[in-house]
Each structure stands twice: as C-alpha cells, then as structure tokens.
Write a protein that binds this DNA or RNA. Structure first.
Lengths: 146, 146
DNA sequence: CTATATGATTGTATCATACAACTATTGAGT
DNA sequence: ACTCAATAGTTGTATGATACAATCATATAG
C-alpha cells in the first residue's frame, strides 16, 4: 500500500543524501565548480540576471549566490553588465567561454549518468527522469511555502 | 530518445543535490542527527557491528563512522559491546531508546514525504520508490568499482 | 620479543551553505 | 535639498558531514 512506497522513498532519499554529501567532498573539481553549475545554467537559459533575482529563482541565500557568481566571474564564465540607472547592481551575463564550459561539463555528467544507468531500460530512464523532475518541483513548492 | 532522459536525469540530479545541501545546513536538528540515521538503521536491521564493518557497508570513511557512532553512543541510542577476544574493537548494538528514537524519526520523515507528495498518485509514488532504490543500488556498485 | 598489522579515535582541512554585519547607492518624506 | 529608511551586493563567521593523515592500543607473525 501507500505506506510501503512512503517508507521506501523516505529511506532511499536518506541514502541518496548521504551519497551526495560524500560525492561533494570527494570529487576533484574540474573547472566548473559543481555548485555553480546550476547558476550558470540558470543564466544560460533565462538570460542575464542580478544576484538577488538569481537567489530567488534558485532559492538560495543571496550571499551564497554572490560567492558562486564571483567565482564564475573570476573564471571568466560570466561577466557583469552595469545598469546605468542603478549603480548598486548589475546583471550577470554568460560569456562564450562560460557557455562552452557549461556544455562540456554537462556532457561529462551525462556520460557519467549513462554509464551509471548502463543496465537500465530506456523506459526506466524516461520514467525516472520525469519523476525526479516532478519530485524537485514538489520540493520547490514545498520550500517556497514553508 | 535516450539523450533526453539522460539530460533530464543529469540536470535534476544537480538540482536535487543542491537542495539536499541546502536542507542539510538549514534544518534544526531533532535528537537524531540526520547523518547518523542511516547508521542507526543499519545496526537496527543488520544487527550489532563494529566501526570498520559499518564503514564498509555504508561506504563511508572509518573516521566518519567513528564520529557518528560516538555521537549516537553519547545519546544512548547505541552501546558498545566488548569482544572478549579482541580488546581493540567492540560491536555497537542498538538500545531500546535508540530503536524508539529511530522509529519516531522515521515516522516524522514519512509524514514529510507524504505531505510533499500529496498530489502524486499512488502509482507514481510506487514507481518513484522503486526507481530511486534502483538508482541508489547502481550508484553503490559504481562507487565500489571506481 | 620485536616488528608489523589492525580497529578505532582524533586532528585538520574542505565545501556549500546560512545568517549577520557591513558598504554603497537609491528613493521618500518632509 | 537633506536626512533616513530601503535595497543590491559583499564579506565575516559558523556549521555539518565528510576525507585523509597521524596516532593509540592491542594483536599477531616471524
């Protein structure tokens, strides 16, 4: 019944959390810092944005986004575009190099997922992708409420 | 095709990782430290074990398990059982209080998952649970190889 | 008996995060 | 126009979960 699925999801989420924590401290980083990947992705898909807007969209603290952005900026993957009407803020826009780097990083990640799921059927992959997205969407809503 | 599922999983895993990191730093802790939950679970389902064995099973560094176990021990959720034939090591076994605490924590987590997935069908939950477990299993194998 | 291996602990570093304090700029009310 | 509150962003500090390296105590092999 329902209870069983709940238990399973609850447990497997704990397992996955643990694994993710472990991966995060373990992996030698390439150029693109893992955490900043989604920031770069956000800018690349939704266009230039300021720190505040990015933080809201990603549901992260402004200070966190500020640091991630500074790091991407320093690597030349994004650059500040000043706003004439407000000298406090700017928009970050992705650079050519940033787009290249993101694509490359994505490709590496995809290959890893592919390898990881090498014994999965296409149907399983498709289902998992859809449900995982649905899960994240649910979490996002839950988060924004309380 | 396959590419699309891969991309989706790759992206949504990044999103989930980020969220998990955020939850980890955000949440006020109850009695049971989040990370130690799986350690307690392992002992509760597989019986008494030493630090080394637990670390292997959980694929964590021995030092990490040692600290988590010390924390659970200090809270009275597990206790050391000396081995007469080897004074270096002991087995940790779960206490009554530990079992109670674990069950309670589990229950709270399940309720949260239930709330989170309130608009999911039973079929979706079941599928997600199964696929999530399969994913974790795949990761575990991948990890143990390289 | 000594040297090496083993189980566990402890010291230290790291990463991504949040919260709090701060800086610079803007805008509103008088 | 001046002051004071609001706002965008940065920087300081703390935290949790981890890994790796050094160490300690005990056990075992030669």
């Amino acid at each position: 019944m329902s209870e069983e699925s709940l238990s399973q999801i609850e447990l497997e989420m704990a397992v996955l959390s643990r694994r993710i924590a472990s991966v995060a401290r373990n992996k030698r980083e390439e150029n693109l810092v893992r955490a900043a990947y989604l920031l770069l992705f956000q800018i690349s898909t939704h266009g230039p944005a300021g720190v505040k807007g990015l933080a809201e969209e990603l549901q992260l603290d402004i200070s966190t986004v500020s640091r991630q952005a500074a790091s991407l900026d320093q690597k030349g993957y994004i650059k500040k575009v000043p706003l004439p009407q407000d000298k406090r803020s700017y928009l970050y826009e992705i650079t050519e190099e940033g787009r290249r780097e993101m694509t490359e990083y994505q490709q590496i990640r995809r290959e890893k997922v592919d390898e990881l799921l090498s014994d999965w059927t296409e149907e399983e992959r498709a289902q998992f992708g859809v449900l995982l997205k649905k899960f994240n969407d649910s979490v996002k809503v839950y988060w924004s409420k309380g």
